[in-house]
Lab assay of single mutants.
Amino acid sequence: PDLGLTQLFADPNLIENLKKNPKTSEMMKDPQLVAKLIGYKQNPQAIGQDLFTDPRLMTIMATLMGVDL
């Protein structure tokens, strides 16, 4: 199971919303991170391994779920 990750990354406004959010806007200036996020739309399971190697993803996930870290 993808634990709902498919829906989190399926939002067509995902990148724009993250660019507008004060907690994630600075991160979204990294083209490699943006490319990763776009890739998760097609393969949400890929985030599982990346969560352990890129701490920014935890902040992004929390933001998408509405959790304040």
Rank of each mutant, 00 (worst) to 15 (best):
P1S: 13
P1K: 03
D2G: 14
D2Y: 03
D2M: 08
L3E: 14
L3Y: 14
L3D: 11
L3R: 09
L3S: 13
L3P: 11
G4Y: 15
G4P: 14
G4R: 15
G4C: 11
G4E: 13
L5R: 05
L5G: 05
L5F: 15
L5T: 07
L5M: 12
T6F: 12
T6S: 13
Q7W: 07
Q7V: 11
Q7I: 12
L8N: 03
L8C: 07
L8S: 04
L8H: 06
L8D: 02
L8E: 02
F9E: 01
F9W: 10
F9V: 03
F9L: 11
F9A: 02
F9M: 07
A10C: 07
A10G: 10
A10T: 12
A10V: 07
D11N: 09
D11F: 02
D11Y: 03
P12S: 06
P12G: 05
P12C: 04
N13K: 10
N13W: 08
N13C: 09
N13G: 08
N13D: 12
L14P: 01
L14A: 05
L14V: 09
L14D: 01
I15P: 01
I15G: 01
I15C: 06
I15D: 00
E16C: 08
E16Q: 10
E16V: 08
E16Y: 07
E16L: 10
N17V: 12
N17D: 09
N17A: 11
N17C: 07
L18T: 00
L18Q: 00
K19W: 05
K19S: 10
K19H: 07
K20H: 10
K20D: 07
N21M: 04
P22D: 05
P22Q: 05
K23P: 03
K23H: 14
K23V: 12
K23Q: 14
S25D: 03
S25Y: 08
E26W: 08
E26G: 08
E26N: 09
E26F: 09
E26A: 10
M27L: 13
M27K: 01
M27I: 10
M27P: 01
M28G: 00
M28C: 03
M28W: 01
K29H: 08
K29W: 04
K29G: 06
K29C: 04
K29V: 04
D30A: 01
D30Y: 01
P31D: 09
Q32G: 14
Q32F: 13
Q32I: 13
Q32E: 13
L33P: 00
L33W: 04
L33R: 00
L33Y: 03
L33V: 04
L33M: 05
L33H: 00
V34M: 06
V34D: 00
V34G: 01
A35H: 07
A35I: 09
A35Y: 06
K36V: 08
K36S: 04
L37H: 00
L37D: 00
L37T: 00
L37E: 00
I38Q: 13
I38P: 00
I38W: 05
G39L: 12
G39T: 12
G39K: 15
Y40H: 02
Y40K: 01
Y40Q: 01
Y40I: 07
Y40L: 09
K41M: 15
K41H: 12
N43F: 10
N43D: 10
N43C: 07
P44G: 06
P44F: 06
P44H: 07
Q45Y: 09
Q45W: 10
A46R: 10
A46G: 10
A46M: 13
A46I: 08
I47H: 07
I47F: 15
G48F: 15
G48K: 14
G48Y: 15
Q49D: 11
Q49H: 12
Q49P: 11
D50K: 03
L51N: 04
L51M: 14
L51G: 05
L51W: 12
F52L: 14
F52E: 10
T53G: 07
T53W: 09
D54V: 01
P55Y: 09
P55L: 07
R56C: 03
R56I: 07
R56V: 06
R56W: 06
L57W: 09
L57Y: 04
L57Q: 01
M58V: 13
M58H: 09
M58Q: 08
T59F: 14
T59K: 09
I60H: 00
I60R: 00
I60P: 00
M61T: 05
M61H: 04
A62L: 15
A62N: 11
A62T: 12
T63N: 05
T63G: 03
T63M: 14
T63R: 03
L64Q: 02
L64V: 07
L64W: 03
L64P: 00
L64S: 02
M65D: 03
M65V: 08
M65W: 08
M65Q: 08
G66M: 08
G66V: 07
G66R: 05
V67L: 15
V67P: 11
V67K: 11
D68E: 04
L69Y: 03
L69G: 14
L69D: 15
L69C: 10
